[in-house]
Each structure stands twice: as structure tokens, then as C-alpha cells.
């Protein structure tokens, strides 16, 4: 069962980290809606990285939603690669960062530990299936050595005092219906023609065979309310417009949302898009 609502809170002022289970957040489905709910519950938060229920398990859903406080308002961005899947496989549904430190913290996250330290280099092992890193290079944040975070979220992160985040997704994650999941994956892979992009030779996001030209992009906005909660790739919106398919994916992973819940959340996030 994946419906854990396990959130990792990190504060750079007190140099403390705490993981909390917050099942009440599960009503928000995930992504942008979950980030908005977290920002209300924790007004001291400054950067929230929120995952969707399908993140890391379903092709074209390997994105995460960055929700950050800048210039007296909250703004959002979306990125994929391996970072969101690594966080999910470390057993978290969101990462909430707060604090305003003049220091420069490197943050190492795994399922059991969170490490801080300016001198924490923490080699990233690309051979690990679910590891990822985001590093400040002096002028910008680079994710997995290739994807550049845009300037506003980068500024918000830097203001918190974060220089590097590396994640080791080392938890053993149970899957409710693996057989069904295999069938869904095969079905989805047959729909790549519906992607609003053409296959390329870039490194792809986790579970996406496209390797498209936009694979290195951070998207500044999402146009679909449900897509922003599932945190599906914005280029895969035509695929996830199929509600039947979305319910199949959710069911295979053990989620039991009904149509009314999804409609309610869609209405809720519409005003934030």
C-alpha cells in the first residue's frame, strides 16, 4: 500500500529533520494540491517538493511539483528526471524545506537517515536505481548533472541555505497489484504516439522511453488540474485525460479515490494554475 502520506520536514535554522505521517493529506491526491495543503498547514515552509500518487511507478508520471515562496507569493514549477522517483523510493510523498540560513547545507536523504553538512560531499552512485542529486554550481542548480532549475525556484532554495540535495531511494516499496501494474505499463508504452513531443536521444525521465528534447526542461506551469496533482509529464496530458486509465493506475497501486474526490480536488487546484 503506497498511501502513506509520509512527509519529510527539514529546517535549516535548527538543522533538524523530521519525518511525519500525515494521512489527512491523502485527500489532496498529491502534487500541487498536496503542496498547497502543506503550505497552509506549515506557513513557515519556504520550498515544498510534492510528489504524485503515481510518481515513480507509472510511465510519464515521474514528475514532482516544486512549490516555493518568493516575492510574497507562492509559485510552482515541475521537473522530472530521477529526482522525484528517488524521493518516492526513499519512502516520502513530499519534502518540506524551511529556514533562512546564511550557511550552505548539503542534505543527504535516505529512507532511514537525513544528514546535514557543508562538508558532506556524498558521492552519488548512478548505478543505484533510485538515486539522484541536485547541486548548486555557483550560478544555478543542476539536477542529475543535466537539468537546470529555473532562476526563481533556485533563488528560493538558495535562500533557505541549501546547496545540494542528494537522495538515495533505498526503501522497499510494496506494490498492491504488481500483475495489474505490469499490464498498465505495457498499455501505456503503446501510447507514446500521444505524447506532445517526439522521441529524442536525451536521457529520459524515469520510466519514460521518449528521451525527448524537453527531457532537460523544468516546466514553469501545468495546464491540467488533475495532471498537476498526479504530477504527470505536461507533455503526456493527452494520455492522462483518460479518466478510466487514471483510475486503473490508482487502483493498481492501492489507492481508492472515487470520481467525486477527484472532481473536488480538480476544482480546488484550478485557481492555482
Amino acid at each position: 500500500m503506497l498511501k502513506s502520506g509520509r512527509i519529510l520536514f527539514v529546517n535549516t535554522d535548527s538543522v533538524q529533520a523530521e519525518a511525519k505521517i500525515q494521512p489527512e493529506l491523502s485527500d489532496s491526491i498529491g502534487g500541487l494540491a498536496q503542496a498547497v495543503a502543506l503550505s497552509s498547514l506549515y506557513p513557515q515552509a519556504r520550498f515544498i517538493f510534492s510528489l504524485g500518487p503515481l510518481t515513480g511507478f507509472i510511465p510519464f508520471c515521474s514528475f514532482g511539483c516544486g512549490y516555493y515562496f518568493i516575492e510574497s507569493s507562492w509559485q510552482s514549477c515541475y521537473w522530472g528526471g530521477l529526482f522525484p522517483s528517488a524521493l518516492k523510493m526513499a519512502g516520502y510523498d513530499a519534502l518540506v524545506l524551511s529556514g533562512e540560513s546564511s550557511g550552505s547545507f548539503n542534505l543527504g536523504i535516505s529512507s532511514q537517515t537525513v544528514r546535514f553538512g557543508a562538508d558532506l560531499v556524498g558521492d552519488i552512485f548512478p548505478q543505484e536505481r533510485y538515486s539522484s542529486h541536485m547541486t548548486y554550481t555557483g550560478s544555478q542548480f543542476v539536477i542529475d548533472g543535466r537539468m537546470v532549475l529555473s532562476s526563481k525556484p533556485a533563488y528560493a532554495l538558495k535562500k533557505i541555505g541549501i546547496s545540494r540535495i542528494f537522495i538515495q531511494g533505498d526503501a522497499c516499496v510494496p506494490v498492491s497489484d504488481g500483475e495489474e501494474l505490469c499490464l498498465i505499463i505495457e498499455d501505456l508504452l503503446g501510447k507514446t504516439r500521444l505524447l506532445a513531443t517526439l522521441p529524442g536521444q536525451n536521457h529520459s525521465c524515469f520510466l519514460c522511453p521518449a528521451g525527448c528534447e524537453q527531457a532537460d526542461s523544468v516546466f514553469s506551469r501545468h495546464t491540467s488540474p488533475l495532471g498537476s496533482c498526479l504530477v504527470a509529464c505536461p507533455l503526456a496530458q493527452p494520455i492522462f485525460n483518460d479518466n478510466g486509465l487514471v483510475f486503473s493506475c490508482l487502483r493498481a497501486l492501492g489507492y481508492s479515490y472515487n470520481h467525486d474526490q477527484i472532481t473536488r480536488v480538480e476544482k480546488f487546484v484550478s485557481s492555482y494554475l
Partner: peptide, 20 residues
């Protein structure tokens, strides 16, 4: 291109569809 579908799928199969 590093999509890692192969390892994901192998993880599913080798855990007897119970975990990753």
C-alpha cells in the same frame, strides 16, 4: 537513454510482484 524500465520491471518480477 536511461529510462530504467528494465530494472523497474525486473524488480517487479523478481519480488514475485510484491515489492520493488
Amino acid at each position: 537513454i536511461g529510462c530504467r524500465l528494465c530494472s523497474f520491471y525486473a524488480g517487479l518480477l523478481s519480488q514475485n510482484l510484491a515489492g520493488l
